[in-house]
């Protein structure tokens, strides 16, 4: 158990291109941090710098009260779960779990105890003597997590661990990871590009874009008050509508902003509402109905209850506090 501190962390590649810059983050003991962003935003690089798989070119990483910049991955007291599981194909599940402990010279009886304990937590007891190739994707993922658990590390690092699973299993495993992390109370850093995964798992979210931190906050903070137009468009599903303010000049209080953001679920039907929308397409989701259209040449999506029929043209209203205003140039929030 330990806190993790990233101080001015950055990664420069030999060619001079910058993958990550100026990341400052204090992770409390037992906290679940999710790094989220589109592909190429540097989130994996950041995680790999914490793990010690990528050299740190600027700043420092502390785990507990040790600066670990120069330490080998094995010496950092962390455990990592990889996207493709990275199980040793020629070893049985039991050997996979025990390998790291064996290398550290843990006594046999202790290894046995920890392996059995992890197997029980993850319900992989029946597979302990099978090879990874004889397991399903979900079972392999559990074994990969088991390998992390038996180490009893200061921190878990997850690198998109659910990306290779099918949608249904992903939701189930997501919940399991959450429960597991709460139960073990181990500090965790989790990388994903899936904003839903990020929202549901995180104690705090770190939204990254182009190697820079856009916003750090609890899922609800980030959802309710996105710090930039990028975060606004990235977090939340269906995505927030971002409209050029010139397309809706009649909305009060928006004149000085470049971009107006409003979530699809904050728009309601109102016969005399200020926004007029031409309907282009309707998506039925069962519990919700998404209506896509345009207003003043800008795309607009609204989420409505699935009742009644939708005419070709709608008038919409909103609560004044549901408007998010962003600067046109910097994309930063201004209200």
């Amino acid at each position: 158990m330990a806190s993790i501190t990233l101080h001015n962390l950055g990664k420069l590649y030999a060619g001079g291109s910058r993958a990550v810059g100026d990341v400052n983050l204090d992770i409390a003991d037992g906290e679940f941090i999710v790094l989220v962003g589109p592909s190429g935003c540097g989130k994996s690089t950041l995680l790999r710098m914490v793990a010690g798989l990528e050299e740190i070119s600027e700043g420092e990483v502390r785990i507990g009260d040790r600066v670990v910049n120069k330490l080998e991955p094995a010496e950092r007291d962390i455990a990592m779960v990889f996207q493709n599981y990275a199980l040793y194909p020629h070893m049985s599940v039991r050997q996979n779990l025990a390998y790291g402990l064996k290398n550290r010279g843990t006594p046999k009886a202790e290894i046995e105890r920890r392996v059995n304990e992890a197997a029980e937590i993850l319900q992989i007891g029946p597979f302990l003597d099978r090879k990874p190739r004889a397991l399903s994707g979900g079972q392999r993922q559990r074994v990969a997590m088991g390998r992390a658990i038996v180490r009893e590390p200061a921190a878990f690092l997850f690198d998109e661990p659910l990306s290779n699973l099918d949608a249904k299993l992903r939701v189930a495993m997501r919940l399991e990871i959450k429960q597991l992390q709460k139960r073990l109370a181990t500090t965790s850093i989790y990388v994903t590009h899936d904003q839903l995964e990020a929202m549901t798992l995180a104690d705090r979210l770190v939204v990254l874009n182009g190697g820079k931190v856009e916003q750090i906050g609890t899922p609800l903070e980030v959802y309710r008050r996105p710090a930039s137009a990028f975060v606004a468009g990235f977090i939340g599903s269906p995505a927030m509508n971002l409209i050029d303010s010139r397309a809706v000049p009649h909305l009060p209080g928006t004149a000085h902003a470049g971009m107006v953001g409003i979530r699809p679920e904050d728009l309601t039907l109102a016969p005399d509402g200020p926004i007029e929308m031409q309907v282009l397409a309707i998506e039925e989701l069962g519990a919700q109905r998404l209506v896509h259209g345009t207003t003043g040449g800008e795309k607009l999506t609204i989420a409505l209850p699935p009742e009644g029929s939708i005419p070709d043209s709608l008038r919409l209203s909103y609560r004044p506090d549901a408007l998010h205003l962003f600067d046109r140039k910097t994309g930063k929030r201004i209200n």
Binding site: L53, P89, G100
Partner: peptide
């Protein structure tokens, strides 16, 4: 052999020779 396997071995504390003996040789048997 995937890089992630090498990385997992590094995190598991296997030095180069241990990695060679425990992972590479059995995999290229």
């Amino acid at each position: 052999i995937p890089d992630e396997l090498t990385e997992a071995a590094r995190i598991d504390g296997a030095g180069p020779m241990k990695f060679f003996r425990d992972i590479l040789l059995p995999l290229s048997r």
